[in-house]
Every structure is written in C-alpha cells, then in structure tokens.
Design a protein around this nucleic acid. Structure first.
Lengths: 333, 333
DNA sequence: TTGAAAGCGCTAACAT
DNA sequence: ATGTTAGCGCTTTCAA
C-alpha cells in the first residue's frame, strides 16, 4: 500500500481531483453526496497530502529555520522547544541548525539556507558581523534573537538587557553588597556590552565605584568559564561580596568555584545569574536570576516572521522587547 | 532579484535545462565551453536549487524526524544536537517533534508524520503501545531510541540498561553501602523496568536483600520528582545510605532534598545518576552517573535509518547496543 | 554531448 | 458545484 495520491482518491470516489482537493482543504461547497464518497475514499486509501508537492505549488516550503549556537546549551534547548511549538501554531515545521556560536559556523549556516529551503529564519547570532548578514540573508526573511551591537535593519526580539542587568545589580545593592563583580565581559558578544552597561549604571546610581578588576572576562559562556573567572575573582586581595554573572551557566560554574574554596554563597558572596535555566532552580544554593519570558520571545519571533513572510512590505524593522523578571532564590538570600 | 530557476540559468547561458542540471549535479560529460558558460550564468544569477522541487522529483524529502518528549530536558537537548550533526553527514535535515512523553502526544506526532513529510524517523518513545506503532508508522522507516518493553519489529539503538544499572549499583556496593535505594520505578516506562531489574540483580549478586520500601516510584523523571521521592526515602525509619536514580534529573532533585534536610552527600547517603547530563559534572556535589555514548547513539540511529531508507529489505530488525561508562564523581566518593 | 518533453503531487485559474 | 488543465522547479528517459 504505497502512498495514495489525490488522483487515486478521485478515481476511487468517481469524481475529479478538484473535488477531492476541495474536500481535503475544507473548501467551499461540495455536494453532500460527493463529499461523502470522497471522505470514504480518503479513509479507504489512507490518503495523506504530499506536503512537498503542496508547498512547491504554493510557493512556500512550510519550514522555518532556527539558527542557534548549540542545542545542548540549556537556554537554547528550552527556547527551541518553545519555538517549535510557536511554529506549529502557524503551520510551520522548525528546522534547527547549530553554529557553535562561531562566525564561521554562522556564516556557513546562513549561506546554506537557500531561499527555497525555508520560508524564514530565526537567528540567534553570537559572532556575526553586520555585512555577513546582508551578504548571506539571500532574501530569506529573518528575525534576530537578542539585542546586538551589530546594526542591521532586521527585526529583533529580546529583553531589554541594560535594564535587566540594572535590576540584577540593584538587587545585590539592596541586600547590602558593595564589592559587586561581574563575570562575562566579552569583546564581541552584543549582549555582553549591554549587560556590562547595565552593571556600570546600577553601580554608579548606587554611588558605588566601578572597579575594573572586578569585571571578569569569559571566553565562552559555559560552566567551566564561570568557574575559572570566579576563581580569579576569589584570588583577589579584596575579593567581591557579590557577583553578577551574564548567564546562568557562568553562575553555576561560579557556584562550584566558590564551594571548592570554602566560600559560602550567599554568606560570603551572593550570586545572580541570567536566563533562568531550569537547572538554576535546583542548584545548591538555587540561583537568583533574570528570567526572560522565553515563551514570549518564541511567539514574538514567529509572529514577526509570519508578518514578513506574508509580505507586509512597508513594515520598518521592529525591535520587540519582551518582559523579564528577577527570580529571587537562595543565592542572594 | 527573485530566486533564479534552472530555466533562467539555461536561457542566460544559451543552453538547455538539461545541461545546466548536469552541471549543477556535477554530472557526466559537459562540453568545457558549455560548462564555463553555465558556471558563469550560475554565478551571475546566484542560482540555488529548489530543494522541494528536487525532492518531489526524486521521491524523497531530505528530512528526518526526531521525535522526543521535550527539548528542554537536558538529555534530549544534548542528543538532538548530536542527531542533527549525524543527519547532516547523510545529507539529512532534522525536524524535531515534541511529544511531552505522553501516549497522546506520541500517537499524534507519529500520525502527523505523513509518508511525504520525512524519509524516516528516530523516535524516543516513552508511553507508546505496540499496536500504536504498527497503526501509525505509515510506512515511514523508523528507529527507536532506548530499550523498551514494547515488542515491535523495529530497529533500536541504546545501551544495555540492565547491565548499566548493575554497574551503577555494584559501584555503590563497592564503596561499602548496604541500604541501597532506587528512585524511578514506573509502571510503563520501558527503561524503568530494565534498570530496576539491574538494580535487583546487583543487590542479589552482592548478597544484599531487595527491600521493596527502598524502591521509590517517580511519576515523571524531572528534578522535582527526584526531590519528592528522596524526601520519602529519607523519612523512612531506616533511611538508605545510597540511592540509585534512574536518571540525572531525579538525582539532582534527590541532591536537593538531601541538602534541605541536612543529609550529607556522599557522607550520609551516596547518589548515582544515569545519563551524564552536562550539568551533572557541576552540581554540588558533582554526580556519579552512567554515561551513555550519546554520539554513538546518534550515529547508529542515523546510520540504521540510512540503510532502511536505501531499501535493504531483507535486513532483520536490529538491536544495537552502544557503549556506556560509569563516571565516578563526588556524589559517591 | 545535449535538447525536448514528460511528470513527481498538488493547487488554482478557467470553463462548464 | 465540479471537471479540465496548466504549471510550481526539478530530474530523467528518449531522441537527436
């Protein structure tokens, strides 16, 4: 029993393909008698539309690309799940591509995204340059995730990173910390610059000095990088009494570095993360963190794409800010 | 500059579509002169093949479905990344579908996988019944991930769960524990039964009694379920001195429940997990766990699928066992 | 070695 | 209300 086609069904029902197509697509007015016969034939043959053919005809692919660094990174795993769901709501299947967060990888992936491969792409760039974007977009509508230094006329969805960082640091100030460090400085990551700006401004606002030695860089944003950076901070003559990490993985690493040195959290040093990964509610201690509304990010991105794809030409590039919250947990109480 | 077609390129180069197609597909013998002109035209138009049309013609889709409970679960996030990579090696794009681990969800997803949607599917079933499988496979070649009670003539890839559980429990015996509990009993999960069997056999082999009150059920395999189960175990008149958790998330939850009650790990109770999620190397204490070779799982699954799709008919359903290792960390030392 | 043309399964004019 | 038919862009006989 090899896949039945519209034609097969039509023959079995004794009607034309058009009628079958109409029934299948829930179309118009079909004589009840015919509808019944078509439906029977449909069931009898176990007909399933050939999506490829349908899309070829319709001039769409039915696919959406989600381009991100790596699915094994909790934040992206969680986000991807939500994007898949949001995509389904718009009859899109989501194709996930991994770039490893390198410019190489990002260029290669965008370049491979032919105009026929997908109807649009949701991209979470980490290292892309502005001109890469223009060069490689290939006419595929795109939405960028997260705020970025890169200035490209493209829709973006994310939270207000400067404000979020301010909220995080203000919280540390509010619980009485004065030597507040930051982990995650990075030369090219767009969000790093923004979170750092928020960190600085919150300190200044509180009348606290910004000490450059308390701003720790991170080559990557993995757990091990957080541990390394935290080790360096704790080795300072005057170590910090609080640390704002630019993501939860860094914070988890920082937690471990502290524990290994017998430094108590939050007793000796309070820690705040960013992203609200599921694991952060279960770390020991659990992690206070900035919780972006990931569901809103996924929905807004897909929605923006839908509007672009359905050809709202005049629409200027949008910058959508979704809500975030400070999730206060044990690492700061 | 709307997407150029083969025809456009042919006209520009002054040759037939066939010749262009030949060049594009690196085919046969093309007169050098013509080849040059085609290549120029190709570059000038920025031609990209329409994958949908190509696949329609070729009778394949170029897509592979990866059906799993949820991408936000670390194990599946990590695995999905590896499957995507393995798929690319065989010129497949991977489509991820989430079932939430319910029979409902699994049935719906498999049912939606028309024969035209994907060339094959890699399925990680959690609740599927044997007849669901036959009813819904719709002729799409499938590979199942993990061992399962469900007996269906389908290729499977996974580790030897009974042996792995034995290795885990033997380790607990080896470090001198005698009241060894298990967390993760479940009425329908295939792996639960196998891991429990390994648990029992390792205890028996060590001459230790199997105490039913030390076998804790888990409705789900999330962190919170591990915490709940651990709380129950610790409330026993004679609490365990070791716990074997059927996955790392349960173990992470157990770690927290212990910490909240002032129970020291591994001092008072040693804990072993299963899966080797990335986070388990950074928990406090870090988690001893069974580490399946996930890369091997991904590769074997894709490879099996490739063989099925390319129509090796006579091939009997395979059961592939990939290697695993016991990763010893702080939670048992 | 290349061209012409059929057709993959579907949708949407157009005609009836 | 339904049938006929022309393609969507591509690959692939079949001829030339």
């Amino acid at each position: 029993m090899v896949a039945a086609t519209l034609k097969d069904v039509a023959e079995l029902a004794g009607v034309s393909v058009k009628t079958v197509s109409n029934v299948v697509n829930g179309y118009a007015f079909v004589k009840p008698e015919n509808r019944r016969r078509v439906e029977e034939a449909l069931a009898a043959t176990g007909y399933r539309p050939n999506v490829g053919a349908r899309n070829l005809r319709r001039g769409r692919t039915g696919f959406l690309a989600l381009v991100l660094p790596e699915l094994s990174i909790p934040y992206f795993g969680e986000l991807a799940g939500l994007v898949i769901n949001a995509g389904h709501d718009q009859e899109w299947n989501v194709l996930i591509e991994q770039t490893l967060g390198t410019r190489e990888g990002e260029r290669a992936t965008l370049g491979a995204l032919g105009p026929h491969m997908v109807d649009g792409a949701i991209v979470s760039p980490e290292a892309l340059h502005a001109n890469d974007f223009e060069e490689l977009s290939g006419g595929v509508p795109m939405v960028m995730l997260g705020e970025h230094a890169v200035d490209v006329p493209v829709d973006r969805v994310g939270i207000d990173n400067v404000r979020a960082a301010e909220v995080a640091v203000r919280h540390l100030v509010a619980i009485g910390r004065t030597r507040i460090a930051a982990i995650g400085q990075h030369p090219t990551r767009g969000t790093a610059a923004l979170r750092l700006a928020g960190y600085r401004s919150a300190l200044t606002e509180a009348g606290l000095p910004v000490r450059e030695e308390l701003i720790a860089p991170a080559l990557n944003y993995h757990r091990r990088d957080g541990a390394t950076a935290m080790a360096d901070l704790l080795a300072l003559p005057e170590p910090p009494d609080a640390v704002f990490c630019f993501n939860d993985l860094l914070a988890i690493g920082a937690l471990r570095a502290a524990a290994e040195r017998g430094v108590r959290v939050p007793g000796d040093v309070a820690i705040v993360g960013f992203d609200n990964n599921e694991e952060s509610a279960y770390s020991l201690p659990s992690l206070t963190t900035i919780a972006p509304d990931k569901r809103a990010i996924a929905r807004a991105a897909v929605d923006l794409l839908r509007r672009r794809v359905s050809g709202e030409e005049g629409l200027a590039p949008q910058q959508v800010h979704v809500p975030f919250a400070l999730e206060i947990r044990e690492s700061t109480s």
